[in-house]
Nucleic acid binder design. Structure first.
Length: 330
DNA sequence: AAGCCGGCCAACCGCCTAATT
DNA sequence: CAATTAGGCGGTTGGCCGGCT
């Protein structure tokens, strides 16, 4: 998405220039509802204007009434989507900032593919935007190949599953957990994340003072507030009951940094995850399938690097940007 | 110059849940 | 309590564009 906004803006401009008809024309012409077939496809600037006008008058909601009141030949769903993703005045335009990218990765590590919830954490950004960004990112990772999966983490995950702690993560993500626990879990090469700038602000995190390592579990009310404080009031997270909760068994699998030791970024990552190396006897290289073996669907790709993400970042859920360090003297 | 390919994005589709009747 | 409706969410697709060969 980065650096593509010009492209997108150009697209928008060319589109706008295409439909320079007036609102009246639109109402009188092809955009008129009047019981005819609902229009599909790209929105025109005229339709946008009609929708904006409608929302100004009637407010958000009751989207199915838009067609009736404004003559717009679009279904309610389409109107809602258009408003939410493009016309809302509080939308932030432009590429994601490095901080936002960081936040997305962090949030995804906690939530998985809960785009709407992630969007609630990123003011001015839409779930669609985040989803697109993430999917593109995963595709890039897929192509980069040579994934590495931290064996001890997988082991931890398996153990956690056997101990029935997994159930606290997300009851709605059974398949996801299943995926995670299978040996053919696609690994992601951490080095790629760093070298390709997918983890743009990671070094800053590592440089955080150890004093910031206060533990704040996700199940705490603080974490909950953090998670939903910025949510639009009427918006209720569909899977409220499935908030990911990392209990101790899972948290213990998080990387532990010795802040008395100087790490380079890569060393930190590799060290903290016990990344697969040729000297790792426990890791069967053959069961480390590259992402590219997966079929094209995003769904599988998006298999939520749920735990994985948490391990990447070494954050505790609910404590954004707070790396976990353990003093070697303790 | 033309064709191919991948990135990116907007929008649709199907499903789910809550509210309403 | 069941059926219906509306809104919301995540997955997926199709088209446009630019870069590369």
């Amino acid at each position: 998405m980065k650096g593509t906004m010009n492209k997108s803006e150009n697209k928008q401009i060319s589109k706008v220039s295409q439909d320079s008809a007036s609102v009246e024309e639109a109402k009188a012409g092809g955009n008129l509802g009047g019981g005819g077939p609902l229009k599909k496809g790209p929105w025109t600037s005229v339709e946008d204007a009609i929708l904006v006008e409608y929302v100004k008058k009637h407010g958000e909601g009751n989207w199915n009434a838009v067609q009736k009141h404004s003559g717009l030949s679009r279904c309610g769903k389409s109107c809602r989507l258009r408003w939410a993703n493009h016309l809302r005045p509080d939308l932030k335009k432009g590429a994601f900032t490095p901080e936002e990218e960081c936040r997305i990765i962090e949030l995804h590590s906690k939530m998985g593919n809960k785009w709407a919830r992630m969007a609630a954490e990123l003011p001015g950004r839409t779930d669609n935007e985040i989803k697109n960004y993430w999917n593109t990112r995963i595709k890039r990772l897929q192509r980069s190949g040579s994934p590495i999966y931290p064996a001890d983490v997988r082991l931890q995950m398996k153990n956690a599953g056997e101990d029935n702690h997994m159930g606290t993560l997300s009851t709605g993500d059974a398949d996801h957990q299943d995926l995670l626990l299978r040996d053919e879990i696609p690994d992601v090469e951490l080095n790629n994340l760093f070298s390709h700038g997918y983890l743009p602000c990671l070094p800053d995190f590592f440089d955080n003072p150890a004093s910031s390592m206060r533990k704040q579990g996700v199940s705490s009310s603080h974490a909950y507030d953090l998670m939903f404080s910025r949510m639009h009031p009427p918006k209720r997270p569909r899977e409220l009951e499935t908030l990911p909760v990392l209990d101790d068994s899972v948290c213990s699998a998080l990387p532990v940094f010795n802040h008395n030791v100087e790490y380079t970024g890569d060393q930190k990552a590799a060290d903290s995850f016990n990344l697969c190396t040729s000297s790792d006897p426990d890791l069967n290289v053959t069961d480390q399938l590259p992402l590219s073996v997966l079929s094209g669907s995003h769904a599988l790709l998006n298999g939520n690097f749920f735990f994985f993400g948490a391990h990447i970042w070494g954050y505790e859920v609910g404590a954004p940007f707070t790396p976990i360090f353990r003093d070697s003297t303790s």
